[in-house]
Computed example of a mutant assay.
Amino acid sequence: MTNEPAAVFEAVTKAYGSVRAADGLDLTVRRGETVALLGRNGAGKSTALGLLLGLDTPDSGRVALFGGAPGRAVAAGRVGAMLQEGRPVPRVTVSELLGFVAGTYPEPIPVADTLALAGLTAMADRRVDRLSGGQAQRVRFAVALAGDPDLIVLDEPTSALDVEARGEFWAAMRGYARRGHTVLFSTHYLEEADAFADRIVVLDGGRIVADGTPELLKRAAGGALVAVDLAGTPGASLSGLPGVTEVEIRGDRARLRTDDPDSTVRALAVRNAIRGLEVSPLSLDDVFLGLTRAQDAHRKHPAHDLEQTR
Results as ranks from 00 to 15, higher is better:
Ala48Trp: 08
Glu85Gln: 15
Arg126Lys: 15
Asp125Pro: 02
Ile109Pro: 00
Val89Thr: 11
Gly77Trp: 10
Met123Glu: 14
Gly99Asp: 01
Glu96Met: 05
Leu49Ser: 01
Arg126Trp: 09
Leu52Val: 14
Leu120Gly: 06
Ala118Val: 11
Gly44Ile: 01
Leu97Pro: 08
Asp59Met: 07
Asn41Leu: 02
Phe100Ile: 13
Gly68Met: 06
Arg91Glu: 13
Thr114Glu: 02
Ala112Lys: 14
Arg87Val: 14
Leu52Trp: 10
Ala112His: 12
Leu117Cys: 04
Leu55His: 10
Phe66Lys: 04
Ala122Arg: 15
Pro58Trp: 11
Glu107Asp: 14
Leu117His: 05
Gly68Val: 12
Leu117Lys: 00
Met123Arg: 15
Ser46Asp: 01
Val92Asp: 01
Leu52Arg: 10
Gly99Trp: 10
Gly99Cys: 07
Arg126Ala: 01
Pro70Asn: 03
Ser46Asn: 08
Ala81Lys: 02
Tyr105Ala: 07
Val111Gly: 03
Arg91Gly: 02
Gly80Gln: 07
Pro88Ala: 09
Pro88Arg: 14
Gly86Gln: 07
Leu53Gly: 01
Val94Gln: 00
Phe66Cys: 04
Thr93Arg: 08
Thr93His: 04
Arg78Met: 10
Arg87Ile: 00
Val94Ser: 02
Arg127Met: 09
Val74Leu: 00
Gly103Asp: 05
Thr104Arg: 11
Asn41Thr: 10
Ala118Thr: 12
Asp125Trp: 04
Phe100Val: 15
Leu98Arg: 11
Ala112Asp: 06
Phe100Asp: 05
Gly42Trp: 13
Ala118Asp: 03
Val111Pro: 00
Asp56Phe: 11
Met123Asp: 13
Arg87Trp: 12
Ala76Asn: 10
Val74Cys: 05
Pro106Val: 07
Leu120Trp: 06
Pro88Thr: 11
Gly99Arg: 13
Asp113Tyr: 04
Pro90Met: 04
Gly68Trp: 13
Thr57Gly: 07
Met123Cys: 08
Gly80His: 12
Arg91Met: 13
Pro108Thr: 09
Asp56Pro: 06
Ser46Met: 07
Gly103Met: 07
Met123Ala: 15
Ala122Trp: 09
Pro106Gln: 11
Tyr105Thr: 03
Ala124Leu: 05
Leu55Lys: 14
Asp113Leu: 04
Gly61Cys: 03
Val94Ile: 12
Ala75Leu: 07
Leu115Trp: 11
Asp59Arg: 11
Phe100Arg: 10
Thr104Asp: 00
Ala48Thr: 13
Pro90Ile: 02
Leu51Ile: 15
Arg62Leu: 08
Pro88Phe: 14
Pro90His: 09
Val79His: 08
Thr47Ile: 01
Val79Phe: 03
Phe100Tyr: 15
Gly99Glu: 05
Ala112Ile: 10
Val89His: 00
Thr47Cys: 01
